[in-house]
Simulated assay, not measured.
Amino acid sequence: MGGKAPISFVSHQDNTNIRNNETPFCMMFGTEAVLPIEVTQPTARVEGYDATTNADSVCLNKDLLEEKRHTAHSHNLQNKQCVSCFYNARIKARNLQLGDWVMKEVIPLPTALRPTWEGPYQIIEVVSPDTFYLKNKDGDMA
């Protein structure tokens, strides 16, 4: 084999969660998985394996698993809150008034490739801030 190592040896993606720095396998079982490539091409982690200390470490990891899951859940909630704040900061509220042209949502939502909105409709009467009487472009009530 020449000077370059095969691509599978050079790069490895373990789907580590950016927020909590844990892999899905670790979040489920409380310990990291050993990849098949690490068995054939030993790494420092595999070479440093000791069966007696490993049993103690596995027990400790299982004890701390609930705490890891709680921390990951807290990070996920915090991330959702940040995304929500980012989105809501860019929303501009617009009050609809008499005479505005709007699109109406199709309920129940259509399947396949049918549109989810229909219209345009003109607001002809405001019943409450979020309730309107509409008419289509032909003048028929909707």
Rank of each mutant, 00 (worst) to 15 (best):
G2E: 14
G3T: 08
G3E: 14
K4L: 12
P6S: 01
P6Q: 03
P6V: 02
I7E: 15
S8V: 05
N15L: 11
N17M: 05
N20H: 15
N20P: 00
N20A: 02
T23M: 02
C26H: 11
G30C: 01
T31R: 11
T31E: 13
P42Y: 04
P42A: 00
A44R: 07
A44K: 08
R45H: 02
D50R: 08
N54G: 00
D56H: 11
S57E: 15
V58Q: 08
C59N: 13
K62W: 11
K62Q: 14
L64G: 05
L65K: 01
E67L: 14
E67C: 10
E67W: 11
A72C: 05
A72Q: 03
S74P: 00
S74C: 13
S74Q: 15
H75Q: 11
H75D: 15
L77W: 05
L77N: 13
Q78E: 13
Q78W: 06
Q81T: 10
C82E: 15
V83W: 05
S84Y: 09
F86M: 11
F86I: 05
N88F: 10
K92W: 05
K92P: 00
A93R: 09
L96K: 06
L98M: 04
L98G: 04
G99W: 03
D100A: 04
W101P: 01
W101C: 07
W101T: 06
V102N: 00
V102A: 00
L109W: 05
P110G: 02
A112L: 08
L113S: 09
L113V: 03
R114Q: 11
P115N: 09
P115M: 04
P115T: 08
T116S: 15
G119P: 01
Q122F: 05
Q122A: 02
I123G: 01
I124K: 06
E125Q: 14
V126A: 06
V126G: 02
V126M: 04
S128H: 01
S128Q: 06
P129I: 04
P129G: 01
D130M: 11
L134A: 05
K135R: 13
N136G: 02
G139N: 03
A142R: 05
